[in-house]
Amino acid sequence: MWYRFQYRYAPYLFVAPFIISFLIFGFYPIVRSIWLSFHLTAGPETSVFVGLDNYTVLLADTDFHKAVRNTVIFAFFSVFLQLPLSLGLAMLLNSRLILGRAFFRLGFFSPHLLGMVFVAILFAVVFAPRFGLLNVLLSHLGAPIERDWLGTPELVMPALVLTALWLYVGFNMVYFLAALQAVDRDLYDAAKVDGAGPWGQFLHVTLPGIKHVTVFVVVLSTIGSFQLFELPYLMLNNGPGPDQAGLTVVMYLYQNGFVTGDLGYASAIGWVLVLGVMCLAIFQLVLGGTLRRNP
């Protein structure tokens, strides 16, 4: 009797702490931010209903346009430069001819151990003029050692992309490597029997074999790069940088919500971000055929 009673009600008890705190600190804030985005606020206490005003102002806000452009450029390079490099590196490391693969994997992964915040601090110094590591290295190739990467608007985005490459190529490589190792090696032999060259093997064996992981990594990278904040904010001395070249959507949200104190406007920025990210992610999932498998 007690046993049946327990078995029946135990799962509710088990999920309760998680679900209750999820509803309070996950679900409620999301719903609440929709409500907030229709209000004009000053600080956490006062708010006036203004309908869609926040959104109409936002769509005409040139600073916001700049933030969106910067964020999209960064996300583009994350997906189309960083991920192919990760895949290439993973394929190199997956070769049976390479000795010490665990060592290489650990080495390439190691930047991730520093973590985003500390990488941002480190690279603020790496990009410093005169003695910064990058300029010193480039000066051996004849480049000027005085170049101020983070003080020149045109060089800010390349600096951010380069930092993200250093931080994430090895991280995403781990995913690709795990996927490649799960591909049945016999398929390659079969493809060779059918006369497929290296390129044919890549197209017909490797790519289909790692498709799910690729979709997963692409979606994660997209969502992650649209949340770009710490790297530019910390590398550019707690701000958007020269000519706002490092202003991102989340940085603009932070500035409006917590420097200016307009939580309503910040929530509207947040929801434009959510809608953009959701559309892209769903588009990618449909393109990757992931949604069809699990309706």
Partner: peptide
């Protein structure tokens, strides 16, 4: 429903919750 709700929130950038959480 629990699973679906949580899968959906995983795709939502957490920064949208900053303002309400700040109030809370």
């Amino acid at each position: 429903p629990i699973m679906i709700l949580m899968l959906m929130t995983m795709m939502i950038p957490a920064q949208v919750m900053l303002a309400p959480l700040y109030q809370m």
